[in-house]
Simulated assay, not measured.
Amino acid sequence: MQPLAAQVAPGTYDQIQHFITDSPWNIQGLEQIVADRAQHLLGGKGAVLIIDDTCLTKFGTRSVGVGRQYSGQVGKITNCQCLVSITLARDEIPIPLRLKLFLPSEWSTNVERCVRAGVPQEHPLQSTKWEIALREIDDLKGTIQYGMVLADAGYGVSARFRRALTERGLRWSVGTVKTQRVYPAHVRLIPIPKHFRGRPPRHPTPSEDAETIESVLDRESWRRVMWRQGTKGPLIGTFAAKYVRLADGNENARGQHLPGEGAWVIGEQRARDEKKYYLCNLPPETAFEHLIQVTKQRWSCELGHRELKQEVGLNHFEGRNWQGLHHHAVLCLAALLFLQWLRLSQPDGLFGETVPAVRREIAGETPRRPRTQIQYCPCCTALFSGP
């Protein structure tokens, strides 16, 4: 804020501090601008919407939502704030659209503490991360176009989350754990007989037993697939996949879940015999290589998180209240969006690395102009000279 104040409001640094932390402006309008511009740059059936979270390391206990929770950046449980992120990505280019604070249990069960930190009364306090993500997906409906929703195992292990995505008509690929139970794709339900001695069962019986995806994929052949062309050459991994029925239907009398929707289970062999597992509800006729390429696109949100922190200062916020944190977050989203627009719209070599496939499409839609003709205000979020 200090360099910004030096340009637009010399000697009044406190006014910009007030604008971010205390001024009662609403973030919805700026969020809509970010979504509209992101749709113009990346939106379409070839894009993916990535759900993840990113953490801001903190000291003390008064910053809203701070608590001891897992931080992927640190790689362990630490004192931090956790923001649920929604990112639009295509051809390795990420544009984060939303950042919403998650309240851990020590906050969500303490109404007085939330009031002191300025948490809005209408905010559902005891929301899980996947419930926050679903609300943002619903809010973006009609604004953003994409072909798939991607998420890591922190979201993918929830059958309710997966069902909610399917009910919204969305295709998804999510991480999961090796103990996720599944049925063979040809499983059927044996109906309850009309005449039964003793107490009749309340649920039909599956014709096959459920087993873990680890055991299912151990019987499959593992293949090497190139899933992305990296800057230092092709990225190749070893994968296996099988189409199954997920064991996430109604629970029967024996505590077993009945067959649910059909989905692919995908395994990835990593270094030191480590394996990662994924679920994907693409149709059974989907090509093996396409399954892998779609699933591995989730990595691009990590690049977006890194740039939010390193390029535009997401983790520099020093306020404590809910409103200030979300003001700061949405301004960071707008700033990073502007940087991505510059990278995509300028001639080669003038502004960092670019992705040719996206740039060619943008160049076909709008004429490309020299960088010297860009007109923008350094203190305003309406930064775009393009359409």
Rank of each mutant, 00 (worst) to 15 (best):
V149K: 03
H40E: 07
A133L: 05
G43Q: 12
V66S: 05
Q28S: 15
V74L: 07
F59V: 12
R113W: 01
T87Y: 00
T143W: 11
L125F: 02
L88F: 10
R62T: 09
Q81F: 00
V119T: 04
R37G: 00
L49M: 15
A89F: 01
K45S: 15
F59I: 13
G75A: 09
S63G: 06
L134W: 14
L30I: 07
H18R: 14
N79H: 07
R68Q: 14
T109E: 15
L125S: 02
Q126D: 15
Q81D: 07
F19D: 09
P24Y: 07
L99I: 05
L30G: 02
N79T: 15
Y13M: 02
I77Q: 11
V48M: 05
R90T: 11
L140N: 03
N110S: 10
K129E: 10
T128G: 14
P94Y: 03
L101D: 10
G118V: 03
G44R: 10
V66Y: 08
L125N: 05
Q39G: 12
G142Y: 11
S23C: 12
D53G: 04
A38D: 06
I20D: 07
W25N: 10
Y70P: 03
T87L: 05
R90G: 02
T109D: 09
V84C: 12
P120V: 12
T61R: 08
S63F: 01
K76L: 04
P124Q: 08
E131Q: 15
G43W: 10
Q126E: 11
D22Q: 15
I50Q: 08
I51H: 00
T143K: 15
L49T: 02
H123P: 01
N110I: 01
I16T: 12
Q121S: 08
W107K: 11
V84F: 00
Q28C: 10
R62E: 12
G67D: 03
T128N: 05
H40C: 05
L97C: 09
T78C: 14
Q126Y: 00
T143V: 11
Q15N: 14
L56E: 09
F19S: 04
T143E: 12
I95R: 01
H123G: 03
L30P: 06
T109L: 11
P24L: 04
M148H: 10
Q81L: 00
V84N: 07
Q73S: 15
T128I: 01
Q126R: 12
P104C: 03
P94M: 02
E112H: 15
I33L: 11
T109V: 00
I27R: 14
A38Y: 06
Y13D: 04
E136T: 06
L134R: 05
S108G: 06
V48E: 09
Q39P: 01
T128W: 04
Q32D: 15
